[in-house]
Design a protein around this nucleic acid. Structure first.
Lengths: 226, 226
DNA sequence: CCAAAAGTGTTGGCTGTACACCCATGT
DNA sequence: ACATGGGTGTACAGCCAACACTTTTGG
């Protein structure tokens, strides 16, 4: 029967369908040093004081889900216009009767400026070496990691992990970090270039004592399914 | 920062994060007569009186999302233990400040017994010929149809659309109804049997004046990704 | 014997995978 | 000259798509 007209509190209680706290979580991934990392916040208030948890908060009045997620992402990292997608909606993550809508995002660590706060301090953590997390946030991170690994295979999501120009080696390192295994260089380059999601810029990156690398960029800096 | 301890109403209002109505929708698909159909409810109360909408309702106190979806599905169709999965969470579907969590399900029409009510009467509708729907439910149905078409390619979800024993022709007809195009018979049979998701039962269906068809069953009557 | 639906194989193209060496640069 | 990482081609296997006729049954 879907939703109806606004009701009084009395009506809601009578029907046993009270309004609920709606929480929003964001799983923010980045890749650095060949490892997949996730942004966590150190809790400075109970419950789970001093434990880590995912960034999030309650949905403000009149706020849409995607707005809340975009806002939270920008608050924590300073970045906008990156890959950000709904992940899943959890109930019973905490002891209360809340519903938690999770989003996930990919960011280029180089363009992130983490929030500085005295409390609720954010920091990056390796996904395969997480501390104890508050609530059931470990489940949420695992769910997001699986989605990311799957999505890597049939989309250009990686555009959001790297600076605008990058070498194919950098891209391959990102893939390897996420998938947790080495990829064959020739096959990787063949596949990526034949997918038509990147193009060479003609510029070269020369850093360190080796041959300069051709720089590429993504044709689209928004989600594309291939 | 995720969720915290229960707050007073005064605290919620001060933080501008009031609790919200949480609605649950279920997109229930079936296949019959070579068409993909979806279950809709005729609204007998405002708003959108006499329009059709998806079955749903507000989340009861202490109820988890999957429980609410399971319950709603059983209320409308009488069936349990079928494919049922979370689809997406929408905000701003209606004029209120609600959040709507949509699920989707696949049922075998033969085992469905539609609810009979004086009001809120449910009925099947062809997906490619929907009436005007209340709220933004057309969006929800399209989203679910897309998910279904995708999932058909790499899972055994169809187990939930057919009786326990069925012929490969029946299965193919279901696929064709969902995908909206004809499939090659030999390739279809080769693919399905080589996926190892079905096995022959040794029994035969003889109905009508033609050659009896070998009956098959799904090895697993729960979601499996292949 | 006719209508209706079941059942069955082969081929060509494409895609993915395995695999090893030479090159350009800076020190 | 050497260490570092960049860049490249081929061969084989598996998968998918196209394609048409024979068989069994009931009427």
């Amino acid at each position: 029967m879907a939703t109806q007209k606004p009701r009084t509190d009395a009506q809601r209680r009578a029907a046993n369908t009270p309004d609920r706290p709606v929480a929003l979580l964001v799983v923010i991934f980045t890749v650095e040093a060949g490892r997949l990392q996730v942004l966590l916040i150190r809790r400075s208030a109970p419950p789970h004081r001093d434990a880590w948890s995912l960034p999030g908060g309650l949905l403000a009045e009149g706020q849409s889900l995607v707005d809340a997620a975009t806002r939270r992402l920008e608050i924590e990292t300073g970045v906008r216009d990156v890959f950000l997608e709904q992940l899943y909606t959890f109930s019973a993550l905490d002891e209360r009767d809340s519903v938690a809508v999770a989003y996930w995002a990919l960011v280029d660590k180089g363009s992130v400026q983490l929030a500085h706060r005295d409390e609720w301090q954010p920091d990056w953590h390796h996904v395969d070496d997480l501390p104890k997390l508050a609530f059931k946030n470990t489940t949420v991170v695992e769910y997001a990691s699986t989605r990311l690994r799957n999505k890597l295979a049939y989309s250009n999501v990686a555009y959001s992990l790297l600076p605008p120009e990058f070498s194919l080696s950098q891209l391959q390192q990102s893939y390897e970090a996420i998938l947790g295994r080495a990829l064959d260089k020739r096959n990787f380059r063949k596949r990526i270039t034949s997918l038509g999601i990147v193009e060479a810029t003609g510029r070269y990156e020369s850093e360190g004592r080796h041959r300069p690398a051709q720089l590429y960029r993504f044709l689209e800096r928004r989600p594309v399914v291939v």
